[in-house]
């Protein structure tokens, strides 16, 4: 039986929501094409996640459980995935496009002699591979890509598909796996935990961007707090980086970084065309600005007309409740 295998990414002891979005998509493709929809969980506590994964329609769940997977390491992850692929012989392996996936996708394709397409915003299977759509040229346009091969790997941008529950009773297949820390050539020395300003804006799933309206320490603190609640990167308009309020590397816009996060919150940004060029491909844009006529509202999905000092504290408090 032909199958589509979805890798369930676990990070900080939780299933990455984006990998369940991919599983939802895989299930739909499997149903439409008469394929088996399988999943693989690789984690120190992999077996604790099988119930959640069953809710999204996997018919077989491969479980690789070993303490080595408590942190992301490319060598053991590659060998575990290779082992599962050799056993399950999938036609397609689908991943959420996380940093962990990006770290191993090319190597896994080379190792398994598979076709591969990364960071797609939609995909489907064909008789001999995968068809996908992906943003190119700094996400200004879309490219349609055809990948052929007996096995094709595909990684999917988060937010590309909705979660669709489809409870099934899955067969759990435990895969024997062991690797010694001392056998690994690459040594993990230290994890420096995430803080808002170290998140790479090019890849951040959420971004909080500050503009001219962010004038003092109090406003900067509100920006940091909002970013921390959302685990978001902090960006800034050119006005603020030039004024030295934020580091130049945080500038978003035509001359700075071009970003396309799932969620972009523009705080006190008027929305000059140069700024919009750098963020218009964000999936959901929220604008908070005092001036109801500011051009940023023309691209915002949710526009809040109001003073950031009054809007941000309840906004942050409500987000904390939702996230908590």
């Amino acid at each position: 039986m032909s199958s589509i295998l979805t890798y369930i990414a676990i990070s900080d002891g939780k299933i990455k929501r984006s990998s369940l979005e991919v599983l939802s998509r895989s299930k739909a493709i499997a149903d439409a094409n008469g394929l088996d929809c399988d999943a693989v969980i690789i984690d120190a506590n992999a077996s604790t996640f099988t119930d959640s994964v069953q809710q999204y329609g996997a018919s077989k769940i491969y479980v690789v459980e070993d303490p080595i997977f408590i942190q992301h390491r490319n060598t053991p992850l590659l060998s575990a995935l290779s082992k599962v692929m050799e056993q399950s012989k999938p036609n397609v392996v689908a991943f959420a496009s996380t940093e962990g996936t990006k770290d191993i996708l090319g190597a896994l394709a080379a190792n398994q002699n598979a076709g591969v397409v990364a960071d797609v915003s939609s995909f489907d299977v064909t008789g001999n591979g995968v068809l996908a759509k992906r943003p190119v040229m700094a996400a200004k346009i879309m490219g349609n890509v055809e990948v052929s091969g007996d096995t094709v790997l595909v990684s999917v941008r988060s937010g590309s598909y909705d979660l669709v529950e489809s409870p099934a009773s899955a067969e759990i297949i435990n895969i024997d796996f062991s690797i010694e820390e001392s056998d690994l050539k690459a040594k993990l020395r230290e994890i420096i935990s995430a803080t808002g300003d170290t998140i790479d804006l090019n890849e951040a799933e959420s971004i909080v961007a500050a503009g001219r309206g962010v004038k003092d320490e109090e406003a900067k603190n509100l920006i940091s707090e909002l970013a921390s609640v959302l685990n978001a990167g902090i960006g800034a308009s050119r006005a603020l980086t030039e004024a030295g309020v934020y580091d130049p590397s945080l500038q978003i816009g035509q001359t700075g970084k071009v970003v396309s996060p799932q969620l972009y919150i523009a705080v006190g940004i008027s929305g000059a065309i140069q700024h919009v060029a750098g963020m218009a491909n964000s999936k959901v844009i929220v604008a908070i600005n005092k001036d109801g006529d500011a051009p940023i509202f023309e691209v915002a999905d949710y526009g809040i007309v109001g003073d950031l000092y009054k809007v941000l504290p309840p906004f942050i408090e409500e987000l904390k409740k939702i996230k908590g």
């Binding site: 990455k16 992301h72 940093e99 690459a186 040594k187 420096i192 790479d200």
Partner: peptide, 17 residues
């Protein structure tokens, strides 16, 4: 020093790498 999913990781690599 690499940017990972849950923060930055320090990884030591022997050469060649």
């Amino acid at each position: 020093k690499r940017q990972g999913d849950s923060g930055q990781e320090m990884i030591g690599l022997p050469t060649p790498c």
